[in-house]
Design a protein around this nucleic acid. Sequence first.
DNA 1: GAGCACTGC
Length: 693
Amino acid sequence: MSQFWKPGTEKPRLLDDEEGGVLFFTTSSSGGGYANLERQRQRLPVFKYRTAILYSVETRATTIVVGETGSGKTTQIPQYLKEAGWADGGRLIACTQPRRLAVQSVAARVAEEMGVRLGEEVGYTIRFEDATTQGVTMIKFLTDGVLLREMMDDPLLTKYSVIMVDEAHERSISTDILLGLLKKIQRRRPELRLVISSATIQAKSMADFFQTSKRRRRQEEEELGPIMEPAILSVEGRGFNVQIHYVEEPVADYLRAAVSTVLSIHDKEPMGDILVFLTGQDDIDAAVQLLTEETQNRRKNSSGLMVLPLYSGLPRADQELVFTPTPRGKRKVVISTNIAETSITLEGVVYVVDSGFSKQRFYNPISDIENLVVAPISKASARQRTGRAGRVRPGKCYRLYTEEYFVKEMSAEGIPEIQRSNLVSCVIQLKALGIDNILGFDWPASPSSEAMVRALEVLYSLGVLDDDAKLTSPTGFQVAEFPLDPMISKMILSSGELGCSEEIITIAAVLSVQSIWVSGWGSQKELDEAKLNFAAAEGDHVSFLNVYKAFLQSGKSSQWCHKNFVNYQAMKKVIEIREQLRRTARRLGIDLKSCERDTVVVRKAITYGFFANACHSEASSHDGKYKTIRGSQEVYIHPSSVLFRVNPKWVVYHSLVSTEKQYMRNVISIDPSWLTEAAPHFYQKQRPNPMLH
DNA sequence: GAGCACTGC
């Protein structure tokens, strides 16, 4: 192992971060991309951080702040803007983050720095929680999704004078939609100021996006006056230097390579925790086991290893183990998914081992299936992982791929989420905001037209869009109001008419959480047996109702959950989502009514939303084979379903997972006559497709 | 008889 690594270095640091932060100031007009930006950094004058921000916001419509993430510099911007009077006259400064936790912690930090109480001058809004005070709050932190929701009532975001989009380089779906809409708003509100904070590697594409084409600019300048080009401010991060090591030869098995690298670090390197990036639960559990065995077998050193897994599906208590301080003389090794890349920050990490892979979602608009696959990460992602080693002192990053691979083959940025996803929710949201020409929308990264057409088709079949691809009234507008997948929203609307909205809203809430069952402890057999206590002959959705009912009867007890293999955290979330959905339903005038034990209407309501997912089993087949009505695709009931091996003739499923076979997850039995009742246009005649003309 | 990267409204 000793000759295994070849030290290399990441790009050199360009400036020292002295006296409270200075930075280079540059504009995008010179162009030339990342390399040119680096050159400009050395050539252009240096401004005080605060001066440069204020100057830029006053003179430019858009300011793009780039630099290493986690520098802490972006949290100062809203404060500077407030001091400079941008929040006067009842106007607010908004600052978005892609995660709830980040919203809360950044808001708390800013409130503390400003010496004010959180929720007053400095506040935040996330789903289920509004910590702002009308007329008092001047700086408001919020998730990008919440800001999008706010636009449904106030499309021009008139109460904000400055909107800052933080972590824009992560390119979440909400951020991309938001950037597209903000660019549009700018045309209508020339006084609105935007600050986009991003990693350096994305600076050029961000600037290009906010820069209008020359021809269009001339046209718009005649109408609206001079248009300002975006400015790029480049700021150095606070992180420590991290030395990068590559493998000399490509590794065949990154799991084993990761394990031996951890052991080698433990043998040869000074104390400091290790963070290993693998792809998923299977990988991680295997690596934890290998390392634990090694620790027990070896006599000497490795007994000092404390090996911990980390992934989202892990029970809360196990997750929190990674935050316990490392005992004296021990070395903590955290084996993690991407959750440690952005969502969870571990202090004390000095060594990072990067497999070079992560699980990523891909969507195929032709088959309409979303898949999770192990894929190579991008350079941007690799840098982010590397940075995790430099939070407390200079660290080391061991990349399990060659330097040549990093330089020549790794793509600079990942594919934005919007190009890897089903667009149904995204399209209805834009429609609700009055964006009629979806195919012509100015996206930071345009999704494929196939994906957009597919989304339009689904919305049309749900009766949410009319022949002109306009939102229908009231159905379309009502469906858009719910923070849910449109098929689920449609199911709720129908349940109002069928008299089972209380039950359907419960089901919608359960389908919105990852799983109501615990994973990770106890045997599979025990979990299956626990599930049987709640199994309903009609299918999984009705079984969910049984679990929910029993949970309420237990007095929402965590002990009850523990005994029954039910995930307590998930059930608490179900209650919260359920309350929000009931409020929305009430606002929309949907009858809140229970059908008591009538499962026929419950299944009918589900069919009204999910008729496109209907399947039937062939009379001759005894192997559980089903065919989708729509595409005659071969599918099977997932073994985790209560209808597995029951194989009713007609079923409707909630989602497909494709592995060896196509599996239907969350399935109910239906009567085929409900299909023509629910969607006569879909099942009786050939569907017209106005979107294609 | 099998698998669930990660967010978010």
